[in-house]
Amino acid sequence: MIRPDAPVLLEIRDLHARVEAKAILKGVNLTIRAGEIHAVMGRNGSGKSTLSKVLAGHPSYTVTGGSVTYRGENLLELDPEIRARAGVFLGFQYPVEIPGVSNLEFLRVSTNARRVHRGEAELDTFEFEDLVRERLQVVQMDPAFLERSVNEGFSGGEKKRNEILQMALLEPLVAILDETDSGLDIDALRIVAGGVNHLATPDTATLLITHYQRLLDAITPDYVHVMAAGRILRTGGKELALELEQRGYDWVDAELAALEGADADRQPAEVA
C-alpha cells in the first residue's frame, strides 16, 4: 500500500559494505515507508543477501560508507539484538540449527525481550504458551516443533515456517525476508506467503529479497528493485518483476556494463 504521507521507517543512503576484503555493497539507496511491500530481485552475488545481513547487523559485514536510518535513529550503531528489539526483523535464508536450546524457550525469551523494549510486561510461561499457540496458526505449524531444539532436524519448509512464527511473535515494524521462498514446495510457499500477508499492516513494512517471481505471485509488492553489483539498478512496480521473469537478467548485464563504463569515464574527472 503506497501512501506518500506515510512515515518513513527505513532510509538507506549510499550504503557501502564489505565482507573481509571484498566490497559487496557499492552505494545502495532505498526508502521504505509504513505500509509498503518492497521486493529486491537480482542474480546470485548481486548483493541482495548482504544488504539483509548488514541491516540486521551481522558481525562478518563491515559498513564502509553511507547511512541507514530507522525511525530517525542510526540503525548501524545498534547491536543486532537491539535492532531486533526495536522492530527490525530478518527472516534468514538458511536458519541455523542450535542443538540443545529449546525452541519454546528461545521464542519466549526473544518475545519478552521485544516486549520489554516496547514497555510491555513480560509474559510468564503460561501466558506465552497461549500466545504461541495462537500464532502457530498463522503458519499452520505443529505444536510439537516447540518442544524441539531450535531448527534442529527441521526440514527446509519447517525452518521457514519457524522463521515466520518468530515474525508473528516479534511483530516487527520492518520485516526483511531473505529468500524466504527458496527450498519451499508449493504448499509451504502458500503457507509462508499467507503468513507474511497476514502480518503486513498499514503500520509495518516488508522487504522481500527473492530470486523468483513465484513468491511475488503470492505477495504483491508495491515496489520492485533490481540489484546488480552492489547497487539498485532499477526500480519499478510489480510489472518490473514480470518483465524480469520474461526477459531474464541479460539486459541487467548490459545496463550494468554501460554504467560501469560511465563510471570509468567519470573517474578522472573526479580525481581532478
Binding site: H58, E81, R83, L90, P95, I98, F106, A113, L170
Partner: peptide, 12 residues
Amino acid sequence: QLFYLQSRGIGF
C-alpha cells in the same frame, strides 16, 4: 548461531 539468537533480540 550467536547472530541468529541476537537477531531475535536476545542479548549476547
